[in-house]
Design a protein around this nucleic acid. Structure first.
Lengths: 155, 155
DNA sequence: ACACAATGATTGACATGTCAACTATTTATG
DNA sequence: CATAAATAGTTGACATGTCAATCATTGTGT
C-alpha cells in the first residue's frame, strides 16, 4: 500500500474520541428517555415529528424523509408503535399506496409527559455547555463533515 | 409544566441537525466498511484494538473498557467474530474467569485489507474538511458535552 | 478455613436496524 | 389503452445492541 496517509498519534486520538462520542451520546439519550419516560429515542422522534406536523395527517414516507431514515425502518417502528397504541395508520385518501399516520390520545399523553425531561436533557447536555460562538462553530463543522461524506455518496 | 425552558426555533434547528448527524455519520461509516471490506464498524473496532494492543493477548474486559462498550456487547460480538474465524478466545492463564483474545491469520488479513479504505474515509470525512483550529474546537466541544452528560450520570 | 461479596464473562429474551425481495398502486409512454 | 417503469410501503431474514439473570472464579473478613 503505497501512498496511504495514515493517522498521526494526535489524529488517532481525536478520531477515537469522536467515534466514542458518536456511540456514547445517542446511548445516553436513549437511557434518559427509557429511564424517565419508558420510550426509545426513535419513538420520541416519531411522536415529536407527527405532533409538530401540519394538521393534515403525515405520510409514512414524509416521515422517512424528514427523519432521514430508511423506509423499512419507519415501517417497522410504526408497526411496533401502533401495536403499543401510540399511533394509528390508515390508507391515505389521495394515494392508494400511502399510509397516513395520526397520533392517538395515548400518544399525545406520552409525548407531553416525556418532553420536559427530554428537552431538559438536550439543554443541559448540548446547549448549556456551549457558548453561542461554539454552537455556530459546531453547526458549521457538522455541515462540513456531512458535505464531505455526501460527496463520497455514503450519507 | 411551569418553568421549562423550551427550545427556540434556532435551537430546535441545531438540535435536529445534531441528532441527524449522530445517526447519519455512523451509518455512513458502516456503509463504507460494509461496501469496501464486508465488515461492520464493530468488527473493525475490535480488530483494530486487538491488533494495536500489547503483545500479550487482550482480555475481553479490557476491550470493553477501552471501547467503552458493555461487556455483553463485547461478548456477543466476539462470539460472532470467533465463528467467522476472525479471532480466537481462550481462558486467561492468570485469572480463571478471564478470556484472552488473539487474532487469527484471517483476522490479520481482514484488518490489513480494510484499513486503507477506512482510514481514507476518516481522513476525507473528518480531517480534511476541518482546519487545525476547528479540530481543536471540535475536541473541546465534544469534551464539554460529554462532561455535561457524565454529570447527569447518563454516559 | 468458610461464608459471602465482588469480578469476569456468558446467555437468553427482546428491541431495533439493514438489506433484499415483494405487493400494490400510480404514472409514463408508445 | 396496454404495458412498462416508478413509487409507497411492507415483510422476512438476519446483524446488532440492551437488560437482567446466571455461572464460575477470585477476594475478603473473621
Amino acid at each position: 500500500m503505497p501512498d496511504i496517509r495514515w493517522l498521526s498519534e494526535e489524529e488517532q486520538q481525536l478520531w477515537l474520541e469522536f467515534r466514542e462520542f458518536l456511540w456514547g451520546f445517542p446511548s445516553a439519550m436513549d437511557r434518559q428517555l427509557a429511564r424517565d419516560s419508558g420510550m426509545s429515542s426513535g419513538e420520541y422522534a416519531v411522536l415529536a415529528a407527527v405532533s409538530q406536523g401540519a394538521p393534515e395527517a403525515l405520510r409514512s414516507g414524509d416521515l422517512a424523509t424528514s427523519l432521514q431514515w430508511e423506509r423499512s425502518r419507519v415501517s417497522h417502528l410504526l408497526r411496533r408503535m401502533e401495536a403499543k397504541g401510540m399511533i394509528e395508520r390508515r390508507a391515505a385518501s389521495a394515494d392508494g399506496r400511502g399510509q397516513e399516520i395520526t397520533m392517538t390520545n395515548s400518544g399525545w399523553k406520552a409525548i407531553r409527559a416525556a418532553a420536559p425531561a427530554h428537552v431538559g436533557f438536550v439543554r443541559e447536555a448540548l446547549f448549556d455547555p456551549l457558548s453561542e460562538l461554539e454552537k455556530d462553530q459546531l453547526r458549521s463543522m457538522l455541515g462540513k463533515i456531512r458535505s464531505a461524506v455526501v460527496e463520497r455518496e455514503l450519507w
